[in-house]
């Protein structure tokens, strides 16, 4: 189902529970009564068109209007990406850590195996943190500077200097597949880990890992297929603008 402006926000969540995490990133809180998506977005100062494309792409992996997504401002896109990073670090990762911790505590027979998982995830957490930090400290500021130069009438040489030190091409090449390790972890738990007594926790952990993996997939898709081509286009035009001078 494609979510549109006029349906009730409550129904969006009823039809797909996972949309909750997207709402959370846009700062939209529960308690909407019968208000529509449009009304709720206005009330929260959220660009409704952007919200719709993001939430629809999140729910349906076949739905990905990248050309339309590229028309939104870099600011809007990177804000969303940034909030998604926060969501991983402040909510998802601690939740998974907590689950693993619980597994360690409740498991007597194969504690050492669970400790292995714990270490694996701990390393992963660090890797994810490095990945998102690099984006926040280098990539996003760069894309914002490009957008600024792209929109301004005067041509400022500093952007050309900036483009000599970094380019979206570099990001594209260095952007690594951060989901891969989560898939490995999932496979290890499903196929190779001697099943702990407490299968409830184990199932819950799998479920959370799977969700995080899907979420990061969606996130990386926006980075690679929306942000990168958009900035590449802007870089071209800026270079042209300067060449003409």
């Amino acid at each position: 189902m494609i979510i549109t402006k006029n349906i009730k926000m409550a129904d969006v969540i009823h039809t797909n529970y996972f949309t909750l995490s997207v709402l959370n990133r846009f700062g939209i809180e529960l308690g909407f009564g019968d208000k529509s998506v449009d009304e709720i977005c206005k009330k929260n100062n959220v660009d409704v068109d952007f919200f719709l494309e993001i939430v629809n792409a999140f729910v349906d992996k076949d739905y990905f209007p990248k050309k339309h997504l590229q028309t939104f401002s870099v600011k809007l896109i990177t804000d969303y990406l940034q909030k998604t990073h926060d969501y991983y670090h402040k909510l998802k990762v601690p939740e998974i850590e907590h689950l693993i911790e619980e597994m360690v505590d409740s498991c007597y027979t194969q504690k050492e195996n669970i400790v292995l998982l714990k270490k694996f995830f701990n390393d992963y957490k660090q890797e994810l943190l490095n990945h998102t930090r690099r984006e926040e400290e280098i990539v996003f500021p760069y894309t914002l500077a490009i957008e600024k130069a792209y929109n301004s009438v005067e041509s400022d040489n500093s952007v050309i200097e900036l483009m000599e030190t970094y380019s979206i091409e570099i990001f594209q090449n260095e952007h690594d597949n951060i989901e891969e390790k989560l898939l490995d972890l999932r496979n290890i738990i499903i196929k190779y880990l001697p099943q702990p007594k407490n299968s409830r926790l184990c199932n819950k952990l799998l479920y959370e890992l799977f969700n995080l993996e899907q979420d990061i997939n969606d996130h990386s898709r926006i980075e690679e297929k929306v942000l990168v081509p958009k900035i590449r286009e802007m870089e071209k035009i800026i270079t042209k603008k300067f060449a003409e001078k």
Binding site: Y124, L183, I188, L193
Partner: peptide
């Protein structure tokens, strides 16, 4: 094995006693 990364393979190796923890 369905495992791609080095840390993943390492866990597999430990679980299967191919290397010592």
């Amino acid at each position: 094995l369905g495992i791609k990364t080095v840390p993943g393979l390492t866990i597999y190796a430990i679980l299967n006693k191919i290397i010592d923890i």
